[in-house]
Computed example of a mutant assay.
Amino acid sequence: MRRSEFDRAVADEFGGAYGAVVTADLGLSGMGGRTATEAIADGEAPRAVWTALCEAADVPPERRYGVGRLEPRS
């Protein structure tokens, strides 16, 4: 997962404004209590941060994988 895919996944799951709040304010136990914003700034892989964010926010498993990708061009 690229950073741009992470950003799209957050926006799709949480919405633009709320997604910004969630990534900036929610401490992730899977990231040592850091927020998603802090973890990414520290160099954590966006996929690992996305997984930790999904676990912390109780995102159902069916909405965790493959999100954030653009549809293939036709």
Rank of each mutant, 00 (worst) to 15 (best):
V10M: 02
G66V: 12
D12R: 10
G33F: 02
G66F: 07
R8N: 09
V49D: 03
A24N: 12
T23A: 07
V67S: 03
E62N: 14
G68P: 04
V67K: 05
R2Q: 12
L53C: 10
G30E: 03
E62F: 15
V67N: 01
M1N: 04
G32L: 01
A20G: 15
M1S: 11
F6Y: 04
P61F: 12
W50Q: 01
F6M: 00
F14D: 02
E44N: 12
F14Y: 11
L28H: 08
G66K: 08
P60T: 10
V59P: 09
V21D: 10
G68E: 03
G32V: 01
D12A: 14
L28G: 03
C54Y: 00
T35Q: 09
E71F: 04
A20F: 08
A36N: 06
D7S: 13
G30S: 08
V67G: 02
R63I: 09
V67P: 00
V22H: 05
R8T: 11
V21G: 04
R73T: 12
G32W: 00
V10Y: 00
G66C: 08
V21K: 10
D58H: 11
V10Q: 00
L53Q: 05
G19P: 09
A20I: 07
P61M: 13
F14Q: 05
E55F: 06
A24S: 14
M1T: 05
C54N: 00
P72G: 04
A20T: 10
A24T: 14
Y65W: 08
T37M: 10
